[in-house]
Amino acid sequence: MGELVTDKHVKYILSVEKRKDDFESVVMEHLRMNGAYWGLTALDLMGKLDVVDVNEVVSWVMSCQHDSGGFGGNVGHDPHILYTLSAVQVLALFDKMDLIDADKVTNYIVGLQNEDGSFSGDMWGEVDTRFSYIAICCLSIIHRLDKINVEKAVKYIISCKNMDGGFGCTPGGESHAGQIFCCVGALALTGSLDLVNKDLLGWWLCERQVKSGGLNGRPEKLPDVCYSWWVLSSLIMIDRVHWISREKLIKFILDCQDKEKGGISDRPDDAVDVFHTYFGVAGLSLLEYPGLKPIDPAYALPVDVVNRIFFKK
């Protein structure tokens, strides 16, 4: 088994947006804020955040904010809750929380909560448990969780719980590891994990590990490095991570590296991208791989950043 080629991944992340005219750059344009979060968090976990110019990043992030308080995916793009969380997380990485007008961001998020407790992603109303997590995580980071109706928010999430112990995107939706992360994360951040059947959900989650050591997101699907984040962080939050094979999963993630040019892919020998590079590094961090900073499974930020937010205000 190889090792994590940290220096190559750092180079890859820094180089990725310099490429021209390829498919990834076109589809990334509107979600550059997410890309920045993935890339920068991965750099921080590898201890290399200092290779980027803080002021450049921070001024760009701030220029994506709208009067409504929400952030767009790029300058001049409409605000969306997806990018608002990424923006707040990036500012937290750089210890620039003081630049956030917390009341404004709060107003934006509070306005997205629906009568049944669910959240819409933007003013046009797509509803999904992903947005419940994002709203709760974002407000928690800026110390304003009390400004939404937490009880209703939790009730909605619980209404998406299935008989297999997992969660879907809306009530009755199939259990999916990505949605489970969002629901378990939101419940963890609101102190409501007692509402989860941890043994049942833990069993479903650990059944996601397949022979190759990788994790899939649903039964009978292929393994994918991104689930080393979604499944693993959920298992940690419900205290059941020892139920899967750590060694096999580490091997799977390392096998997905491009050892020459850097970057991590979804499965061995596929093309790498920033998204999977982040999830691979974050997964390894959750598995306490040597040389990586620990990441918080609920906030999806390095533990030292979370500690700074809550203990050194």
């Binding site: 021209k20 990334m28 550059r32 890339g39 450049e56 760009w60």
Partner: peptide, 9 residues
């Protein structure tokens, strides 16, 4: 924006 961190072509 000013000096884009992740300039996309």
């Amino acid at each position: 924006g000013p000096c884009p961190v992740v300039p996309i072509n």
